[in-house]
Design a binder for these strands. Structure first.
Lengths: 116, 116
DNA sequence: GTTAGTAGGTACCTAGAGGAAAGTAAAGGG
DNA sequence: CCCTTTACTTTCCTCTAGGTACCTACTAAC
């Protein structure tokens, strides 16, 4: 990773894709409970509105991280699932989770020290 | 406190710490060019305003990822550097960068397919 | 006395993200 | 003819993050 000379952050675009608001809870929900319908996601991602859930799912679909399957029934049924590209995030999220488990206590300690 | 779906996503709090806006360009700049002054950061993080740079530096300092050193001179001189806790992010950012290098082409391809 | 140079602080304002609530489509059942 | 269900879509509104511009303290040098 020799990006010396580049002033912009080289992982900025990756972060935009992976960590924009609501994306990780959605991906996590799909990863945890597998393929599921719109209403299931709405129920399991606490606090999200249907408008924003639709927006984020469209974005994830456009980025190829989530696949949408529409069943032309009445009432309509739509299923979402993680694509192989989305599944390739698993080790990344794993190390993120591991870093958090190791270091979040230090961060909270630093916060208490700073605030006190 | 921001609601990102805390109950549903176990890495939500880590993401709030590491990937809130402007934090990674700042950390990257400190990592690339080492200890530096406020004005240097302002120049090297393109587009950031002094107000927000101050806000983000205070947040990073509070979280223990960045250390601030104030020199009581005239004119004042303040230096920022990454702490060991901040430096522990290097492998994480490395795998993030690697994932991007491997998969961003797939994402852009998916976007073109979706748009077309 | 006034200017330069640094690291902010503060007041004001705007843009845009997101919330709430209502509307839409479709087919079958009553 | 209306009701039901689902997955949105649309409209309206709010709220806040962030931008702009100006203000501050401090001393040396001119």
């Amino acid at each position: 990773m020799e990006i010396r000379g580049l002033e912009a952050c080289p992982i900025a675009d990756v972060i935009d894709v992976l960590f924009s608001r609501w994306t990780t809870p959605i991906l996590w929900g799909l990863h945890e409970r597998g393929r599921q319908r719109f209403g299931d996601l709405e129920r399991h991602v606490p606090g999200i509105s249907p408008k924003v859930l639709t927006q984020r799912l469209r974005q994830l679909e456009r980025d190829g991280l989530v696949a949408r399957t529409y069943h032309a029934e009445v009432p309509p049924r739509v299923e979402y699932e993680i694509t192989p590209l989305g599944a390739s995030l698993e080790p990344l999220f794993g190390s993120l989770s591991a870093w958090g488990a190791t270091n979040m206590p230090s961060i909270e300690k630093a916060r208490r020290a700073y605030d006190g």
